[in-house]
Simulated scan of single mutants.
Amino acid sequence: MYAVIKTGGKQYKVSEGDLLKVEKLDGAVGDTVELSEVLMVGGEKVSIGTPLVPSASVVGKIVEQGKGKKILVFKSKRRKDSRKLRGHRQPRTILRIEKINA
């Protein structure tokens, strides 16, 4: 069984036991998170939502809270001797999908 969920403005196809890197969710390591924005549930019988599947949810456990890889943002203006270098690390959460409720 698999599901398509929406969190953090992105869509993910998940199944039970998957590790998933998503935008930061509130909670500590070991907490259980229920994601209720389920767009589709597949398996023997496919259910497609309009836009969400009613009474469907995905339960996951927070494995890690942290930051992603550093990206460098470099801005310069030609002939002006103007340069700016900034780094950014996006906060992220790693979830282990435990159960899909259809």
Rank of each mutant, 00 (worst) to 15 (best):
E37V: 12
K75M: 04
L95A: 12
S82Q: 13
R86V: 11
L52Y: 10
G60Q: 06
G43Y: 09
L39Q: 08
K77A: 02
A56G: 04
P91C: 03
F74M: 09
K80N: 03
S55F: 11
L85N: 14
K61D: 04
V46A: 10
K77S: 03
A28I: 09
R92T: 11
L39E: 10
K70I: 06
L35V: 13
S47I: 09
T50Y: 12
R79Q: 02
G68S: 02
G60R: 06
M40H: 12
K67G: 04
R92H: 15
I62H: 07
T50Q: 15
G49I: 03
E44I: 15
V33D: 01
P91S: 01
L52R: 08
V29F: 09
R83F: 09
G60H: 07
D81P: 13
S47D: 14
L25F: 05
G42C: 03
G27T: 10
A28R: 11
R78C: 02
I94H: 02
R86T: 13
L72H: 12
G68Y: 01
P91L: 03
G49D: 01
D26L: 15
G30E: 04
V33K: 03
L52A: 06
K80M: 04
R89L: 00
V53F: 00
F74E: 05
E64S: 13
P91T: 00
D26C: 14
D81E: 15
K84W: 08
K61I: 03
R79E: 01
V53M: 01
K61T: 07
F74N: 04
V29I: 15
